[in-house]
Amino acid sequence: MNSIIFSAGARILVALLLVFSVFMLLRGHNLPGGGFIGGLIGAVGFIVYALACGTAEAKAALRVSPEAIAMVGLGIALSAGLAAAPFGEALFTGIWIWVGGDSYATAALKPNTVLVFDVGVYLVVLGSIVSLACAFEEEV
């Protein structure tokens, strides 16, 4: 599959898929999407890239090893869950903070741990699956 057209197209495709995966992740709370789906789409993007240009280049494009991404994601998800403790809530309760208002409807900015948790899920799925696929691609 060392076609130039494929490898050139793959670069564009990967960029598109990555943007799309982040889009799916962010809209997931209100419309179909979320961390699992976003992560899977991102992983598919990198796998296409790896098939087209080789795993070494795909990993170089990621900059950090996929295993590290997965572990960092797990850590982020755990921190989001533990963040409920200082607020006196049960662990893994979603915490919302209103900036510029006093309720969900009026606040301008709504930082919350739920999205952080979903980002963790996204990174876990992305890292795990890219790691798996690369291992298969390299060793098999």
Partner: peptide, 26 residues
């Protein structure tokens, strides 16, 4: 504050379960 009920269950109501599940995936 989520309109996608499936996602709200995953990341909020049952986040602890989800955490366990992503740990299994890793």
């Amino acid at each position: 504050y989520g309109r996608n009920i499936v996602n709200v269950i995953l990341v909020d109501f049952r986040a602890l379960d989800t955490f366990g599940e992503i740990a299994v995936v890793v």
